[in-house]
Design a protein around this nucleic acid. Structure first.
Lengths: 216, 216, 216, 216
DNA sequence: CATGAATGAGAGTTCATTCAT
DNA sequence: GATGAATGAACTCTCATTCAT
């Protein structure tokens, strides 16, 4: 008589869970190794499936990557957009909130590695660069510009050059991401990200807020 | 009388020039395509030699890259260090000068691509990352910290958190380099680098300079 | 009163139709793409079933192919055989009729692609080649030989080399099939198949009919 | 002391001989297995080199195939063209000669398998089909048409439909090639190719030559 | 009966590195 | 010194077949 115990199926049927599992594995490896250097076989293995299985869910490597971006970053961007749209208070507080939220939702998280990866490999994968540019970067840039415009319109910020100031505000995010995913791990004296952001914001807002009345 | 020393046949003079030619070719390709994606055969071809010749001068791809860093970036860092050491004036002017010099010598130049490349591929080539970290980044960081200390010591800057402010100052450089070598080429509304640096410096110095006495 | 026999639910009637649907799909794809390049998944999809279902009806790809041959070509061969057996008239008319019938039933039809496919891939699938050889080619060859023998026996044809003339008669069929399924689609000046067959037959019968007595 | 004898180099440097060796191996395997089923690794192995070496000489599989065609078939076609251009005698003799030469140079040879292969896989490799069509088939077709025209012009042939008769003349070549490379090897009673061609030509010329004067 | 997720052996192609010449 | 032919491991993507459901 056959012993039914211990008979492990050659594989398990997990249609619904698979994409998530694969995406999770993919994110880890893309962040660890970059796009070009990530082997699909490793992604599959980490998700506990065979190489072929990946292709049941994602047409090819690029589509897998896009799926990663779509599920891990795009929703956060969208959420930020609506959070901005619904915000009531002072634009300086809005800026601070958005930056801090970004840190919590993206920066501190491994998904920030995706952004760094795109910066890194844009040249070799123009299709990917274009996709990320459209889905994330330009939306992000627009968000910051709109916050600055809001501040200016409401008289909360001085009448600064929006484009340039947008870049200034993006710089520390880029900085943190780059640091975290490249030199950071090698560096000893580490960066306190939130303190860094605060230092930065204090400085930036100095430049943004209108001159305070001489006597107060 | 002609000096016979100068009459060496062209190819023999070539011999000495080889490494430079190879390095020049390597820099171009590393910057264009990144480390992993640059084919040594292309480097050789661009330098007008054969693939095998490369290995006469450089042990392998990593050593070639290190040589690139050593010849194109390290000297600039060293020069900056001594320029700082010999500077007399106000620390704010020093900061401004160093940043602007950096833009002229590195940022605007293709060698800035090397920095971006290291950020990008550090994870896959830890040996390279470590090398760059030691030879360039930590020296650069130390330079900025020392300038800030100088300012504080001389009473020209407020008593700020040096580590954090160092990062703040590095951020825009990272920003410019990243922009130039990844999204920049895709993006429409382009960044005026020097204006951007000035905007940034104005803002940063606001935060650094001691509160001016109400009446002056 | 309605006949209850006909009220079977649709899917149950479907059950019997499945093999035919699969065979129809298979024929299309085998002809379009050849044996090796046809994907069973595509066959299944075109028949509106899943990949696994195919394996309920056909052991594997080769058996599917054999079934295609058995249902689409073998019956036509059998019919031709009995049509020859029952023919009364002049052997030249018989030959002409058989060739023209072949064109109508096979040549002009997509099933001619099956023959071409076997010629094409025989080397890689010897089992298939053997099957087709036995079920179709040797029967077809025998048919032509027997017609020639009939003609000779009845004094309607000259006493030619049967084997060779059989090949001569097969050549134009091969020609038409090959043309139709490979170069034909690329070629501009197209072949009028029936005119071609007639030209050929006129020529061939010249060689077959006994010399006409000078005076008639 | 090292014994210099018996030290076989890891590989041998044979730049000039390589392409021929590879082409020879390629022809064998393409003919044996067809285009799609031939593995480049096998081609390399048969030529005694590694897979990578193939790519030093041929850009990819398609180019390898084209090179095979260019070196093994195209020159024969060219030669036939000039042989026709320089022919003096009766057009019937010319036709006979060209067909027989074809058999000796191509038909009997393994290169005839290339033609069969193209017929077989044209649908799956349109690029290849186009190439072969242009370089071989249309040139061959033109050759036959021009011979027929010559015959008609010189009053040696009746005024037949050139296009159709061209196809009729091509049919037996197709027949022989197909036979040789597919069913032939399975078939017992084999075809005597030269006898077959003669039988065919006798028959065809019957149809081509002008009616002989009743009394002679 | 029917499904379709899962497998896994290969296929073509690339490239850093070696080494006979 | 200089060459460049040769290697071979690595990578992405494919598909006939199996089998848990």
């Amino acid at each position: 008589m056959e012993c039914p115990i211990d008979t492990k199926p050659r594989w398990e049927r997990r249609k619904d869970a698979r994409p998530q599992e694969l995406l999770a594995a993919a994110i880890d490896l893309f962040v660890e190794r970059g796009f070009a250097s990530t082997r699909l076989e490793d992604v599959a293995r980490r998700a506990g499936v065979s190489k072929g299985t990946l292709y049941l869910y994602f047409e090819n490597k690029e589509e897998l990557f896009k799926a990663v971006v779509r599920t891990s970053i795009v929703p956060v961007v969208a959420e930020a957009e609506s959070s901005i749209a619904g915000f009531d208070g002072h634009s300086a507080d809005l800026l601070r909130k958005v930056l801090m939220d970004w840190w919590e939702r993206i920066g501190a998280n491994k998904v920030s590695g995706i952004g760094k990866l795109v910066m890194a490999e844009a040249g070799n994968f123009p299709e990917l660069a274009k996709f990320y540019q459209e889905e994330v970067i330009s939306r992000g840039t627009r968000m910051f510009s709109s916050m600055l415009e809001r501040g200016v319109t409401r008289g909360e910020f001085r009448d600064i050059n929006i484009t340039q100031m947008t870049q200034v505000l993006i710089a520390p995010m880029l900085m943190l991401v780059t640091w975290k995913h490249s030199v950071g791990p090698c560096e000893r004296g580490d960066l306190e990200p939130q303190a860094f952001l605060n230092t930065f914001l204090d400085m930036a807002l100095h430049g943004l807020l209108p001159a305070t009345p001489p006597a107060a």
